[in-house]
């Protein structure tokens, strides 16, 4: 709570008057992923005065964002699901990451407190496949010798609306469970064989709050501000880790970013402390912009965000990219657009 009010206080200072001087500002528009929308709004707000750029980002979903940037109806697109090298070349797009986010599992089991329950990826996959249906299932009990788990039906909740959050979650489940990968697969909306959907983070959290025995997945920021009961998850190295800043950072620094389109796989990274469900979100920028000045402003805005925005990202519980990645992205800009 303390941190929250501090955050409010700090940002109040940044707020601009509504009808503030806009004449000298340059507008750029973007559309796409909903997952990074809060931080993009935050950056836009903070960057307006120092850069003179007004960013209008519409969180329409990754799919619609890709549509719009392909049709060049916006200056940049945002997507949680990275495009592959071939798709990027075909559409003349440069892809770069901006920030990372982490997902946590939340539960509602009587008598279980925050970060007490230990789960593994394959177990989570089996729960969302509908194969494990009781909280006192032998496999769960074996992982949690100290806890008394009730004989309660597991009620998995997922995002009803197509979302980047779902994309990251099923990416993780598919990475750790071949069966999940085959039966469900990866996408911003998938067919879950069990459980119920609810709209938005608020919907999933609300369902978990309402239903005894429910489990859900939300962005870490949401779990923190709403004091939801999170769980430990076993990572690639075999350690149970809690969802906290240090385990997120550990995952981020372990990833290999030297892949086309920076489509690094941060999910289920090696490293003794890595949180397994961390993912970057991406920006798509045309390499043959119709308006070079606007394209330059997009880069100027994200350059500002890389230099000055990490603190704001951390305040909203996003994970800033390592400095080395910022520089690699800047190098890619220079390569595509010149200095």
């Amino acid at each position: 709570m303390n941190r929250r009010s501090l955050l409010l206080g700090a940002s109040a200072a940044l707020t601009l008057p509504v009808f503030g001087a806009k004449a000298q500002t340059a507008q750029i528009t973007g559309a796409g992923a909903t997952f990074p929308n809060p931080i993009y709004q935050k950056w836009a707000e903070a960057a307006r005065t120092p850069t003179g750029i007004q960013v209008n980002y519409q969180s329409v979903g990754s799919g619609a964002g890709i549509n719009q940037i392909r049709n060049r109806t916006v200056d940049f697109g945002g997507t949680d699901a990275p495009l592959n090298a071939q798709q990027l070349t075909e559409a003349n797009l440069l892809q770069f990451p901006t920030v990372m986010g982490s997902l946590v599992a939340i539960v509602n089991i009587p008598g279980i407190a925050e970060d007490q329950l230990r789960l593994t990826g394959p177990l989570l996959a089996d729960i969302y496949l509908g194969k494990i249906t009781r909280w006192n299932d032998a496999q769960i009990v074996a992982l949690n010798p100290g806890l008394s788990l009730p004989n309660l039906t597991i009620a998995p909740a997922y995002r009803a609306d197509g979302s980047g959050t779902t994309f990251v979650w099923v990416s993780y489940l598919s990475a750790v469970s071949p069966e999940f990968k085959e039966k469900v697969g990866v996408g911003t909306s998938v067919r879950f064989p069990a459980g119920t959907g609810a709209r938005g983070n608020e919907g999933v959290a609300g369902t978990v709050r309402n239903v005894r025995g429910a489990i859900g997945y939300v962005e870490n920021a949401y779990a923190i501000t709403n004091k939801l009961v999170t769980t430990q998850i076993r990572n690639n190295a075999g350690n149970f880790v809690k969802p906290e800043h240090k385990s997120f950072m550990a995952a981020a620094s372990a990833a290999d970013w030297s892949v086309p389109g920076f489509a690094a796989n941060v999910i289920d990274q090696a490293g003794p402390e890595s949180w397994p469900i961390v993912a970057p979100t991406f920006i798509l920028l045309p390499t043959n912009p119709t308006d070079a000045a606007r394209s330059a402003n997009v880069r100027r805005f994200f350059d500002w965000a890389f230099t000055n925005g990490s603190q704001l990202a951390a305040e909203l519980e996003y994970i800033p990219l390592p400095e080395s990645v910022h520089n690699a992205v800047r190098a890619a800009w220079r390569q595509s657009f010149g200095a």
């Binding site: 799919g63 609306d161 197509g162 459980g195 709209r199």
Partner: peptide, 22 residues
């Protein structure tokens, strides 16, 4: 009491994640 879909709700929920031409 199980979850389901209606045509209208499916369209509203999935539209944003659908690419043109898909």
């Amino acid at each position: 009491f199980g979850p389901g879909n209606t045509i209208a709700s499916l369209v509203a929920l999935e539209f944003g994640e659908s690419e043109i031409g898909s």
